[in-house]
């Protein structure tokens, strides 16, 4: 379990570089230190799985890596630059356990929502969204509201949305947690395949050893540090 990139990727600049990340939360009268100095470097096209027990800080780590939360200590860079909210839409995509599709929008518009964060979508963006939906096997369901889709279909829409802006980094937080085994396997296969094709760096938080085994690097978080 090595937080450093594999030798095949060391000649490129890291897409994600985290050093000494620390995070603690107040609990009662004291505080709990969830992350105790996490180091992580991820290269373009690399896929990294993070496993660990429930409550060990996997989701907290993803929140720090995505810039949604700030570390108590440590440094983080996105492609060599400090993380900034206004760069998030273009730089990274996120996939969550609970999909988080917008119920008022259909599948196509949910995918296009990521593009809308950058600019009002034109024909090219619509074509790409339709293409991504076709890639995840949902072209016939493009005009269906998210409430009319099954769990697996929703997660595939979420994957397409995460890749809509061709991000350099994709963070997936237990994306198969709410899916049955067969659907979960299919979603992971799809995620890895699309990331490979587009050389998108992937950080996959999962409990599933089989899914973790399919990534190029495997990390285990224990007591707030990578083992």
């Amino acid at each position: 379990m090595n937080p450093a990139p594999s030798s095949s990727a060391t000649d490129a600049a890291p897409v994600l570089q985290a050093a000494g990340l620390r995070k603690s939360f107040l609990s009662g009268e004291g505080s709990i230190e969830v992350l105790r100095g996490v180091d992580l470097s991820v290269m373009a096209g690399e896929s990294v799985s993070v496993r660990g027990e429930s409550g060990c800080g996997k989701s907290t780590l993803l929140n720090l890596l995505s810039g949604l939360d700030t570390p108590d200590a440590g440094t983080l860079t996105w492609a060599g630059h400090p993380p900034r909210g206004d760069r998030r839409a273009a730089f990274l995509g996120m996939v969550f356990q609970s999909f988080y599709l917008i119920p008022e929008l259909n599948a196509l518009d949910n995918v296009l929502m990521a593009a809308r964060m950058l600019k009002p979508p034109g024909a090219a963006e619509r074509a790409r969204a339709a293409d991504l939906l076709a890639r995840v096997g949902l072209a016939p369901r493009a005009t269906h509201l998210s409430t009319q889709l099954s769990g697996g279909e929703r997660q595939r829409v979420a994957v397409a949305r995460a890749l809509m802006n061709s991000p350099q980094l994709l963070l997936a937080d237990e994306p198969t947690g709410n899916l049955d085994e067969r659907t979960g396997d299919a979603v992971i296969e799809l995620l890895l395949e699309l990331c490979r094709e587009t050389r998108t760096a992937l950080v996959l938080v999962t409990h599933n050893a089989v899914h973790a085994g399919k990534t190029s690097r495997h990390l285990s978080l224990h007591n707030g540090v990578f083992q």
């Binding site: 998030r88 119920p103 964060m117």
Partner: peptide, 13 residues
């Protein structure tokens, strides 16, 4: 609330 959180995650200010 969760959708608002998602908008932040997607890059909304």
């Amino acid at each position: 609330t969760r959708e608002i959180g998602l908008l932040g995650a997607l890059g909304g200010q």
